[in-house]
Amino acid sequence: MKLNQIRKWHSALAPIVMLPLIMTVCTGVIYRLSKDWFGLSRDQVHFLMSIHEGEYLGHTLEPFYVLFNGLGVIWMLVTGGVMVFQNLKRSFKS
Score class of each variant (00 low, 15 high):
Y31D: 00
T27P: 07
Q44W: 05
G28S: 09
L19R: 07
A12Y: 09
L3C: 04
R42W: 04
V73G: 12
F38Y: 15
T79G: 00
E62F: 09
C26W: 01
G72K: 11
V29H: 04
H10R: 06
V78P: 01
A14W: 04
Q86T: 02
R90A: 15
K35I: 05
G70T: 03
L61E: 05
F64A: 10
N87M: 06
Q5D: 07
V17Q: 03
K35T: 00
E62G: 07
H52T: 12
Q44L: 01
L21T: 12
V78S: 08
L88T: 05
S50F: 08
Y65N: 09
Y31V: 01
K89W: 08
N69C: 13
R7F: 14
R7W: 15
L77Q: 02
L48C: 02
L19C: 09
Y65E: 03
V73R: 02
W75I: 04
T60D: 14
S91Q: 13
N87L: 07
F68V: 02
F85M: 15
I6F: 04
Y56D: 04
R90F: 04
S50H: 09
N4G: 14
M76R: 03
V78Y: 05
L61I: 01
T60Y: 11
G70S: 09
L67K: 01
K2T: 14
H52C: 12
L61Y: 12
I6G: 07
S11W: 14
P15W: 08
K89Y: 08
K93R: 12
F64N: 01
T24C: 01
S41L: 00
S94P: 02
D36R: 14
M1S: 13
V17I: 15
M18C: 11
V78D: 01
P20V: 09
V29E: 01
S94R: 11
R42C: 04
L40V: 00
L19M: 14
L57W: 01
F64L: 13
F92I: 06
H10I: 04
Y56Q: 06
F92D: 09
L21S: 10
G72S: 06
F38V: 13
S50G: 12
V29G: 03
M83K: 12
M76C: 10
M83T: 15
V17W: 06
G58M: 03
T27R: 00
M18G: 00
R90K: 15
V29L: 06
F47M: 05
V78T: 04
W37S: 11
M1R: 08
L88M: 13
M23H: 00
G28N: 00
L61V: 07
Y56I: 13
M18Y: 10
N4E: 14
W75H: 05
H46D: 15
C26N: 00
S41E: 14
F68G: 05
L77A: 03
L13K: 08
V17C: 09
G81F: 13
